[in-house]
Computed example of a mutant assay.
Amino acid sequence: MTHINVLDPGASPLDYYGYELRRLREASGLTQKQLGDILNYTGSLVGQIETARKVPTPEFSERADAALGSDGLLSRLVELVLRSQLPAWFRQVAELEARATEIGTFQANMVHGLLQTRAYAGATLGALDQTDLDDRTAVRLARQRIFEKTKPPVFWMVISEAALYQEIGGRETMRGQLAHLLNFEHTPRINVQVLPYSAGAHPGLTGSFTLFRFASDPVIVYTEGYGSGHPSANPDTVQDCSLRYDHLRAAALSPKDSAELIRGVMEDRYGEQLA
């Protein structure tokens, strides 16, 4: 008899998800392969998720809910699973992103995670560590689901021109990433401004930071180091970073001019090259 891994549903959100998926599948009288065929995934993947060896995606969960008639159970659980897979030091930030009504960020070196493509995210996460890269990339991209809410936050990213030239993941990945930024050119709730080289010395030279604003709670400033995050509601820190951010937005190109610059970099640096 084939050994079936017995999960403890109380061990973690991932174990609970796997336990529920197996329970629902068996109640429907389906094998892992049969369910995989219905969902357009492999039976092996279904088995890995059921045994908590693979992290499910929102897409998988939506398909499984529809196939198993589970009334959105797996889609609700996957949010907890993905949150639990974030590094412990970053989970509070994900909660801030989910609750914020407005997010303003200055990015000195790369595109913010909330606007990254899959290829770009994978390249940044895999720079030194390829372990479980697909799962870690899926977890990062899942944070972007905050833009699918009924009332998504207003997101404003000021990014240095240098970040557009930092070739992360290769030419094709960068071209795709810059094209993705251009998708928001006419989206009022997601705004991208480029801080050009011509700005010279600016208030963001000390590094990237993010401001989270809420309907009723105090503003929180978030900065990041290697393997650590530093949220702060200290009034002096918030006031200082708010002033810095106002000056950065003022020094940056308008969203329209930023889009033109991004379009130019995408074509001139990452466009198709003649043989």
Rank of each mutant, 00 (worst) to 15 (best):
Q130S: 15
A64D: 08
G126D: 08
G227W: 04
G29L: 05
E161H: 14
R91I: 14
E224Q: 12
V46N: 00
L164A: 04
H180R: 08
E267W: 02
M1T: 14
L68D: 06
S160M: 12
R249I: 08
L114E: 11
R99S: 12
A64P: 05
T57R: 04
V6R: 01
R136Q: 04
E59K: 14
L274S: 07
P152M: 14
Q239R: 15
D217A: 12
G69E: 13
L80V: 06
A162C: 12
D217G: 03
A179T: 11
T137F: 09
Y245T: 00
R118C: 04
V192D: 01
E161M: 05
S84H: 11
A199S: 10
D37W: 08
Y120M: 10
E224F: 11
T2K: 13
G29P: 06
S198D: 12
S61R: 01
Q166S: 14
R63D: 00
I159K: 09
G176L: 15
L178K: 07
Y270N: 02
R22H: 15
R143C: 13
F212V: 06
R263G: 01
F106C: 03
Q177G: 11
I49V: 13
L115F: 06
L7Q: 02
Q177F: 15
Y197A: 11
P231G: 09
L243P: 01
K33V: 00
S84Y: 10
L82H: 06
V81E: 00
D37P: 01
L243S: 08
T51H: 04
P255F: 00
V6K: 04
A127N: 13
L74M: 04
L125F: 06
L181V: 02
S28N: 13
F106W: 10
A88T: 10
M1Q: 07
A100N: 03
R269E: 11
Y19F: 13
L274N: 07
R118I: 06
Y41F: 08
